[in-house]
């Protein structure tokens, strides 16, 4: 693959990410409009568990740094290690989220119980879904580098994955600030 192709794909992904930002903007706007509509069920401040949230946030942040460092690596071993570490941290992050969601549903605060809960589940869940897709991508790249080693096409794909993953961490900044931390001001 030529460097030409490199520019295309990276630029295409960049456009996709910007478009995805607008998608999240739509979800954030919805959340902001509906966040007071709790109808006697749990409200934002009930969902705030500072310590878990902090761990979750630091886990994702660390993974974002690791994938960034991985793009600089040359050897197959280091890259595989970086991908694996990011993957595991992503898994931990998703694990926390699933645990939170399951707990809420079990406590009778599922997404169907109020407009606030609907918007909460969908906003946070959409981010989680993106993280899951990123992890699937990591898995694929892991298999590729394991089978074929680092090729030019591979490093292009790794750069793209890193870009996507950084973007997810940036969205998370907005989520932990607006959805969780600011819920105490309500």
């Amino acid at each position: 693959m030529s460097t030409h192709q490199h520019n295309h794909s990276l630029f295409g992904l960049w456009l996709y990410i910007l478009s995805d930002c607008v998608l999240f903007a739509g979800l954030f706007a919805t959340f902001a409009v509906l966040r007071g509509q709790t109808f006697g069920n749990l409200s934002g401040s009930d969902l705030l568990h500072l310590s878990t949230l902090l761990v979750q946030t630091l886990v994702l942040l660390t993974s974002s740094m690791i994938i960034g460092l991985t793009t600089q690596a040359k050897s197959r071993g280091v890259i595989l290690f970086g991908l694996a570490a990011t993957f595991i941290l992503g898994l931990v992050f998703i694990g926390f989220e699933i645990q939170e969601f399951a707990g809420l549903v079990a406590a009778g605060a599922g997404p169907g119980h109020s407009a606030f809960l609907s918007s909460f589940f969908v906003l946070v869940g959409t981010h989680g879904l993106h993280v899951a897709v990123g992890m699937l991508w990591m898995l694929i790249l892991g298999v590729q580098v394991w089978l074929h080693g680092t090729t030019h096409a591979f490093s292009r794909r790794l750069t793209m994955l890193a870009l996507f993953w950084h973007f997810l961490d940036i969205v998370w900044i907005a989520i932990f600030s607006i959805v969780y931390l600011l819920s105490t001001t309500l």
Binding site: G36, Q37, T38, F39, G40, L186
Partner: peptide, 13 residues
């Protein structure tokens, strides 16, 4: 009451 049936009594909104 026609209007109120859609509203949340406890909601600050």
């Amino acid at each position: 009451r026609i209007v109120g049936q859609f509203l949340d009594a406890g909601s600050p909104m």
